[in-house]
Design a protein around this nucleic acid. Structure first.
Lengths: 146, 146
DNA sequence: TAAATACCCATTGACATAGTAGGTAAGTCG
DNA sequence: CGACTTACCTACTATGTCAATGGGTATTTA
């Protein structure tokens, strides 16, 4: 599935902040930008959205930066997708001929696929991402599958 | 999940053709357009893609139209999505800092979510859609879930 | 020959994405 | 106080996709 860079970068940024903000330290946008090779100004916009969504808190000025405002296990992939993406978790809203085949196909299959997807993204939290990135053992990936 | 109308209409059209093309009869675009309330000219483009993908055969002229060129159980949702959609089943292709967190998150979670999605769309065929639309019994929908 | 149909191509308006750019506000350190 | 660093906010642009619309050509049937 194609996912927007906004979501990708947002997820990377959150994970980066979670990992590098130990002992009350904050993580600055320039730091993230350099570590993860993300355009600084673009990253700022994404961090703004993440702050407005309540995932992170910011402090201005020298030695300023960002820190998580919730524990990692209280930020789900669903939350992040809702904050940064328009399409993935959106519902269908097409209008069809009532006597046509559209409503049947739509209500059933896309609804079901949506539920499956959402139950998957609900089950994944930032904690999983952090853990995954801490010890990058590809063998352990399977444990996060549905 | 937001799905393009191209996919929706294509799926509806295929199902419509499957249902209304019994005894070797063909189904014309104007007919489908009228039954399913889809713009005729837009539908034509979609039918063109479906024909080029090998799902349907066309006959021009009066009494012309379309018919399936494969049995309904040999056309999967994956096939249709590949023919009509760019994003849903596409792989990620972002470039990240090799020493950053991007590759880990990307390879694992989006890869897994992709596999889950694909195994779902692989399991659904036009036959299911046809059956579903023939006897519209919402109670039977559950049988098509993963 | 006339009508119906599929085929093909060009264009358009709306929208989202992926940035880029520049200025403002606030906090830190000398 | 003043330079510096950072977050914050707004605007703009370039590109691409979507969802059609429209026009014209080729083919088949009655």
């Amino acid at each position: 599935m194609k996912v927007s860079t906004r979501v990708e970068y947002g997820l990377i940024a959150l994970t980066d902040i979670a990992i590098y903000s130990e002992n009350g330290k904050t993580v600055s946008a320039p730091d993230i930008s350099a570590r993860e090779s993300i355009s600084h100004k673009y990253l700022e916009q994404i961090l703004l959205l993440l702050r407005q969504a309540g995932f992170i808190a910011a402090r201005k000025g020298l030695k300023g930066g960002y820190a998580l405002s919730r524990p990692t296990d209280k930020i789900t992939l669903t939350d992040v997708l809702n904050a940064l993406d328009n399409g993935i978790l959106a519902e269908m809203e097409g209008e069809y001929a009532d006597d046509g085949l559209g409503p049947v196909i739509n209500d059933c299959f896309w609804g079901k696929i949506n539920n499956e997807l959402k139950s998957y993204t609900d089950s994944l939290t930032l904690e999983h991402f952090v853990e995954l990135c801490r010890n990058r053992t590809p063998e352990s990936w399977d444990m996060y599958v549905i």
